[in-house]
Amino acid sequence: GCFECLPNPINLRRPKKLRCAYKELVRLSQESRFSVNEVEALYELFKKLSCSIVDDGFIHKEELQLALFQTSQGENLFLDRVFDLFDEKRNGVIAFEEFIHALNVFHPCAPMEEKIDFVFKLYDLRQTGFIEREEVKQMVIAILMESEMKLSDDLLEQILDKTFADVDADRDGRINKEEWKDFVIQHPSLLRNMTLPYLKDISTVFPSFVFNTVVENA
């Protein structure tokens, strides 16, 4: 595994322990919807992601980008937002604990309310408690760039008009949490990215955890 790579002298954040301690696995399992074995399986995924560019036991933004886009170059607004929400401690890297906490929301058994909240925070770019028209515009421009599509300014404004007509029930020009919730309940497909079926039985996706397990049949 990656944690057994040769020491890297420029790697200052390399953790001393190569494996996640049993107590830590149990704690993370208790804090989440994952069993201890599932936390171990997710640790296999975490190790793979966290050593893809810098082998220091943390996921850097470039490593998340590499996994999602097969390139570590370029800017992507959505990647930035996802990274920021995973990075609870706001220290610029994702630790294993943060990885588990965030993936917990993507569990098929996580309540819809949690998923709705997560996406609201994701889209509330400036974190004002509202999704504003400028933010939606910025995100539409970002998705157009990502998919190399072009839209005229006029069409873009029409899409924004329609969106706010659909969602902004009190017509104050910004979307609050309640309006967002009401809209998403009517359009649950907007949450499709928020459920990862793999997480239902993660230990079969990453069976290699069996070789590294510290707990039998947890």
Partner: peptide, 25 residues
């Protein structure tokens, strides 16, 4: 027709939001 779409339908198609790709071997 793009104009018939709600912006959030477009946005939800972003690769950056599709974490399923993390599980690709």
């Amino acid at each position: 027709q793009p104009v018939a779409m709600n912006a959030f339908e477009l946005i939800s198609m972003s690769k950056g939001l599709n974490l399923g790709n993390l599980f690709d071997e």
